[in-house]
Design a protein around this nucleic acid. Structure first.
Lengths: 208, 208
DNA sequence: TTGACAACATACCGACTGGTCTGTATTGTA
DNA sequence: TACAATACAGACCAGTCGGTATGTTGTCAA
């Protein structure tokens, strides 16, 4: 059998797909899924509807699913999960991550757009079961990674034994959703850092 | 000068406005502001575009603003603020409110649609400054009410003196946004109650 | 009784939406 | 070299959108 990925008519089949995917992510990130326009997407990707419906035959929905799976998922992985897997001291690592990313998103101005995953979740979860399942899968992974880290922290004596890893993980993830959501409507870096620091002091209260 | 509110041609001027407003709230609550359709709104309100643009000359935007100010604001007031103003023991009162409303929203099924204010905030804050300001005003009031209650709790000896009321308030409100957001994509009552209980145990850690 | 005006209803508009269809150039394969 | 398949481009489509213009009806002050 021939290698599919290399076959390319026109020029750069896989790169065209990637361009559409990235443009779609940006469009949906800024205007929402329902508000996002396929015309704008193909325009900013430098291609046409023909290409879009060639790579995503089921149109907008399939494109949205692909954005969640292939763009947002990996972002979550690298941003919040990678630094936690295998951690023996989740409190220290989480505090560092919180402070770093709050600072980063404020400086880049990205905080006004919020968290891409949360945006999709709030808008599309109630409207489309396919979206909901994909999004839920990511949030489950997110919570599980945190919970595993807390369980490891308990074993390593860095977290007090009375904490329920799953409960704490659920609260931390929820807090993150809320803090980044707060930034969107308040546009206040003080408020985001304030809430972030409150999480940090909560985390400190979980020390043995 | 004549009383304006009583003058009514057709039948029930003010009640027509209210019907449109309520229909708009439901439509936006279920489909988002951008996804919500004016045609659907007037249909389910049992009226027409003429009436809508008579009462809201600036169209969809003005209608959206009115939904935030006249529907969502009062809901927030009655649901989360009324029980906290003048409270001397915010920890007890907040825990009760959390448990009550988690239970209530699960039983009614409303939890799949999330918090109306948060929905609007996530979708519209980055896109429209008028929305953002109105929404921010409500969140500020929300946090301030909590912060005042915590300050009173400190004075009354029901909350330990080391807590920063403003920080704790910011975190609690953010957590609420996150918990109700979690419910939307997970559809898991266990997860919502679990996160809710984690908040309760966090609140307990703020006792003197 | 008679305007004047509020309170609608209805028909209609251009813009834009997601989506399809057909044509065409490029490519690997036989 | 012939052929089929891939990878697009661009025209086109029906439907829906928010919004407007005009018409009609009920109410009230004069």
């Amino acid at each position: 059998m021939a290698k599919r990925a290399i076959s390319k008519a026109g020029r750069g089949a896989e790169s065209t797909r990637a361009a559409i995917l990235n443009a779609a992510f940006m469009e949906f990130y800024h205007n929402g899924f329902q508000g996002g326009s396929l015309n704008k997407i193909v325009e900013s990707a430098g291609t046409t509807k023909g290409a879009l419906f060639h790579h995503f035959p089921n149109g907008k929905q399939e494109l949205g699913y692909a954005v969640v799976d292939e763009i947002i998922g990996p972002i979550l992985q690298q941003r919040w999960l990678e630094s936690l897997v295998g951690s023996k001291d989740p409190i220290t690592d989480l505090k560092r991550a919180f402070r770093q990313y709050v600072k980063e998103d404020i400086e880049s101005g990205n905080y006004v757009q919020g968290c891409p995953l949360n945006n999709m979740a709030q808008e599309m979860s109630p409207l489309d079961e396919g979206f909901r399942k994909r999004i839920d899968k990511l949030y489950c992974l997110w919570r599980k990674t945190y919970a595993d880290a807390f369980a490891a922290g308990v074993k390593a004596g860095k977290v007090k034994k009375s904490v329920e890893p799953a409960s704490v993980a659920a609260l931390i993830v929820a807090s993150q959703m809320g803090i980044w959501g707060t930034g969107k409507s308040s546009r206040s870096l003080e408020l985001m850092t304030q809430a972030g620091e409150a999480v940090c002091s909560y985390l400190d209260s979980l020390r043995p």
